[in-house]
């Protein structure tokens, strides 16, 4: 179940192991999408994330929506990044 409205969040891959991570409201990186800071417009979040080039690689903005248990990315590619391969 989703509420229908979409937000933006910032994701990247962690430098030392490549794991998918999300930028949090505390300015750190988390492996759980539920921890992702989300906003109508993530421009500021992206700028804050990009200031930490040693933590995570290739930060970019994704669309997320609220789901039963926290957040869920919009689109198959980001769902696979968030929840793992489908096979």
């Amino acid at each position: 179940m989703t509420t229908g409205s979409t937000y933006q969040a910032v994701t990247a891959n962690r430098l030392r192991d490549g794991v998918t991570v999300y930028f949090t409201a505390l300015g750190a990186w988390s492996t759980a999408i539920g921890d992702a800071a989300h906003a109508e417009d993530a421009t500021d979040l992206l700028a804050a994330a990009a200031a930490q080039p040693l933590e995570a690689v290739g930060a970019y903005v994704i669309a997320v929506e609220k789901a039963d248990r926290g957040l869920r990315p919009v689109g198959l590619r980001e769902q696979i990044r968030a929840f793992g391969p489908t096979v």
Binding site: N13, D17, G18, V19, T20, G58, G84, P85
Partner: peptide, 10 residues
């Protein structure tokens, strides 16, 4: 050296 960064890991 053959190392890529992919969706979930290197």
């Amino acid at each position: 050296n053959g190392l890529y960064l992919q969706l979930h890991a290197y």
